[in-house]
Computed example of a mutant assay.
Amino acid sequence: MKIKNKAMAADLGLVVTTVIWGSGFVAVKNAVDTVPPSYMIAMRFGIAVSLMCVIFFNRLKKIDWDCVKSGIILGVLMFIGYYLQTIGIQYTTAGNNAFLTAVYVIVVPFLYWIIRKEKPDGYNIGAALLCIAGIGLLTLRSGFSMNIGDTLSLFCGVTFAAQIVAVSILTEKNDPILISFTQFVVTGILALVVALFTEPFPTKMNTNSILATLYIGIFCTLIALVLQTVCQKYTPPARASLIMSMESLFGSIFGIIFLSESLTIKTFFGSVLIFLSIMISEIKPSFLKLEKESAELPDSTK
């Protein structure tokens, strides 16, 4: 398969990831009343690790120290991101939480520039700004003011930006499946340790919360995060962050379908802006390629 086809397939895979994450908002809403935040994180990653042991048993025998080191880095970043997001939403609105978390769309290109010395171009910056405006329309419902929850959500977005960039770099020379496994183990262990010392054990889980937790563990964690890690091997981090920001779009769509949330003018135009930002990101390589080829053509008038 050509690299171009791999890149297209990777972008499509990231879109599927965001669809799953978007549906996860409904599942989380059905589980948070009976499962404390850190236990939820520990359970979802525990389910993912258990299933990966069964599905990739022979492959996991190839784990080496490089995979372990990569998994520790990604696992720590992922746990911090999820934990800050979960704690932050307790002190701010869901809209502010989602909007500030999505700041990774802006941070990723510049963080990658700092680490890899690859300067973001006008397309990257324009698409990111357009995307963050769309997410703002989707998520911000009643004004905006900074408090402790907003601050935690902002740091969450920066942490997720670091995680996205780290995935892009660490999957260049490592098996994405093995990195995903070690990342899940580290995240789950950290969540369990925090849960045991700070939260009551969930003893009143009902059928809905159990089914929701299973869905989050299997689909939103195992399938979606493995897919993210594999696809980011073939997608530049700036474009990957834009595509993954569609989580807020699909979250709104599933909220309208399953939670009877209303479709507003803001939701519509926010969705349009996010879609346009993705299109700018996707079309950009074609324009750049044409410009490069035009520059390389010999001048017949000379």
Rank of each mutant, 00 (worst) to 15 (best):
A212E: 09
I280E: 07
L263H: 09
I274R: 01
L297P: 13
G270K: 01
S281I: 01
E282I: 02
S245F: 05
F268G: 06
P285R: 04
L227V: 01
Y215E: 09
A295E: 15
V230G: 01
V272Y: 03
S260Q: 12
T221V: 11
L290F: 15
V230L: 00
S277P: 05
T207F: 03
I216V: 14
A238N: 09
M205N: 01
M279S: 09
I265C: 05
S286Q: 13
E199H: 09
N206H: 01
V226G: 00
T229C: 05
P236Q: 10
C231T: 03
I280Y: 03
L297A: 15
I265H: 06
S271H: 02
L211Q: 03
R239M: 09
K204H: 12
P200L: 11
F254H: 10
T221S: 15
G251H: 06
M244A: 06
S286R: 10
Y234F: 06
G251A: 15
L214E: 09
Q232Y: 02
P237M: 02
K284V: 02
F269C: 02
D299N: 14
A295S: 14
F275G: 06
I257W: 14
I283A: 11
L225Y: 15
C231Y: 02
M244L: 15
L276Q: 01
R239A: 06
L249G: 11
R239S: 08
E291R: 10
Q232V: 01
S209A: 08
I253C: 13
I210S: 00
T229F: 02
L273F: 12
D299F: 09
F269A: 00
L288M: 13
I223A: 05
M244Q: 10
F219T: 08
K204F: 04
L297Q: 15
L276D: 06
M279N: 06
S300H: 13
M246T: 14
L297I: 14
E282P: 04
S271N: 04
M246G: 11
F269N: 00
F219A: 12
V272E: 07
T229P: 06
E247F: 07
P200M: 11
I210A: 01
